[in-house]
């Protein structure tokens, strides 16, 4: 038996090969979908909504990427990366849609790399540092519960592109929510330490809940999920203490600018480069 044919294959050129790794396989994400803005839909409003949802996803994916090589177990390493990749994929589709409809023709990277913190519209919840695993799980639980409820409604949006992106996202977000809920229950129920940490995480996210409930009224659904999970975990429901300001208006915590400096640094150092 010889391995030569394998090495020959490896040594050959593969410029036409578009079979990329999981979660990366799209060149034209909106292929086959009618990309005209339907009558009665305000293009600028649609673009703003897409950017808002993309910013939430990109900033969350960046925080999830920070877990890489730091997760408590290899299975969590894989799962957190999966969720990060899903959200990164959603961000890319949404930025592409925004660029098509806002009249600028910008590509996804223009939105991600060449806007400053004050131009980002993500909720502040997404930009908070990862903290411990309990905080990241509780944040993910809140974020994915909200985003899932929101995307279920957006799947019926009058813009067919946004509707298609949302429909795809619903399947992903259902998994994210389930993953976070299972861990929240494990941590709440597990040991004294894990209970204490998770309880504290719930207190820490509480001030950032209000900001989520602006566009579509999904508050009741999110609260129902949270109360079900906290009950199963033996944890108290977080108490609302809304903070002034809103990430949706470009008012951010001190944590967003450093996050973006890291995300954008290489791209901005080489603005003429192609990658």
């Amino acid at each position: 038996m010889s391995d030569d044919h394998v090495y020959m294959t490896l040594a050959e050129g593969h410029e036409d090969d578009t079979r990329w790794a999981y979660g990366t396989g799209f060149e034209d994400p909106l292929q086959g979908v009618d990309t005209d803005v339907p009558d009665g839909v305000d293009a600028q409003e649609l673009a703003a909504l897409c950017v808002t949802l993309a910013d939430d996803a990109l900033v969350s994916a960046q925080r999830l990427a920070e877990w890489t090589t730091r997760a408590p177990e290899l299975e969590e390493e894989v799962a957190l990366a999966n969720i990060g990749l899903d959200l990164l994929g959603q961000a890319r589709l949404l930025y592409s849609r925004a660029g098509q409809v806002d009249g600028t023709g910008r590509g996804e990277d223009a939105y991600a790399y060449f806007r400053d913190a004050g131009e980002f519209r993500n909720v502040r919840l997404a930009e908070l540092p990862n903290g411990d695993f309990a905080f990241s799980i509780v944040r993910l639980l809140v974020f994915s519960s909200w985003r899932l409820a929101h995307f279920e409604r957006l799947a019926a949006h009058r813009d067919p592109v946004l509707a298609a992106i949302a429909a795809k996202g619903v399947k992903e977000l259902a998994y994210h929510r389930q993953y976070a809920a299972e861990w929240a229950v494990r941590l709440g129920d597990g040991t004294e330490e894990s209970h204490r940490r998770t309880r504290r995480a719930l207190e820490q996210v509480a001030p950032y809940l209000g900001e989520l409930f602006t566009a579509y009224d999904v508050r009741d659904e999110v609260v129902a999920v949270l109360s079900q999970v906290t009950e199963a975990a033996g944890l108290p429901m977080p108490v609302y203490r809304p903070l002034p300001g809103s990430g949706r208006a470009g008012e951010h915590t001190e944590h967003l600018a450093p996050l973006l400096a890291e995300l954008q640094g290489v791209a901005r150092a080489h603005p003429e480069a192609t990658w």
Partner: peptide
């Protein structure tokens, strides 16, 4: 991963490290 200079490269690298 957090510094990749395009979203496409970010996704490819993230997926690779996950692999």
């Amino acid at each position: 991963i957090t510094r990749a200079p395009s979203l496409r490269r970010k996704a490819i690298l993230f997926a690779k490290v996950q692999d």
